[in-house]
Simulated scan of single mutants.
Amino acid sequence: MDPTNQPPDPSPFLSWKDPREVAKRIKILIKAIEQSPVSVIITDPRGVIQYVNPKFTKLMGYTLEEAVGQTPRILKGGFLTREFYTNLWDTILAGNEWHGLFHNRTKQGDLVWELASISPIRDDNGVITHFVGVKEDITELKRLQDQMAHMAHHDQLTGLPNRFLFLDRLSQMLAQARRRETSFAVLYLDLDDFKAVNDTRGHAAGDSLLTAVAQRLQGCVRETDTVSRMGGDEFTILLADVHDLADVERIVATILTAISTPFTVGDAECRVGVSIGVAIYPLDGLDVDPLLSTADGALYKVKASGRGGYCFPARHAEP
Results as ranks from 00 to 15, higher is better:
138 I>Y: 08
68 V>Y: 08
150 H>E: 07
194 F>D: 03
173 M>C: 04
26 I>F: 01
289 D>P: 06
26 I>P: 00
107 K>V: 09
313 P>W: 09
227 V>A: 10
87 N>F: 01
70 Q>V: 01
48 V>C: 01
128 I>C: 10
49 I>G: 00
3 P>Q: 12
256 L>K: 12
42 I>A: 00
48 V>T: 12
294 T>C: 14
12 P>H: 02
256 L>F: 01
165 L>G: 04
229 R>V: 10
34 E>M: 06
82 R>Y: 11
141 L>V: 08
128 I>L: 07
12 P>I: 02
213 V>I: 14
250 R>D: 13
276 I>D: 00
316 H>R: 13
190 D>C: 08
157 L>C: 13
150 H>T: 05
127 V>C: 12
288 V>D: 04
183 S>Q: 13
60 M>I: 03
273 G>M: 00
215 Q>M: 09
153 H>D: 10
12 P>E: 02
217 L>I: 15
163 R>I: 03
82 R>E: 15
174 L>H: 12
140 E>I: 09
64 L>Q: 06
49 I>Y: 11
113 W>R: 10
49 I>W: 11
79 F>D: 02
23 A>R: 14
116 A>S: 11
89 W>D: 03
179 R>N: 13
44 D>L: 01
115 L>S: 06
223 E>L: 15
263 F>G: 15
218 Q>V: 09
238 L>Y: 05
40 V>E: 02
254 T>E: 07
48 V>F: 09
197 V>H: 02
26 I>Q: 15
207 D>H: 02
66 E>K: 04
56 F>M: 00
255 I>M: 03
28 I>A: 13
272 V>Q: 05
178 R>P: 11
105 R>D: 05
153 H>I: 02
86 T>G: 00
254 T>A: 14
63 T>M: 00
166 F>W: 06
40 V>S: 08
191 L>F: 08
106 T>K: 10
303 K>Q: 07
95 G>Q: 08
96 N>R: 13
170 L>G: 06
147 Q>H: 10
129 T>D: 06
274 V>N: 09
309 G>M: 04
170 L>W: 10
216 R>V: 07
33 I>H: 05
50 Q>Y: 07
275 S>W: 02
41 I>D: 00
58 K>S: 09
132 V>G: 13
301 K>A: 11
299 L>V: 04
218 Q>L: 14
122 R>A: 14
108 Q>E: 13
238 L>H: 01
247 D>Y: 14
16 W>S: 03
146 D>Q: 14
236 T>N: 12
71 T>A: 03
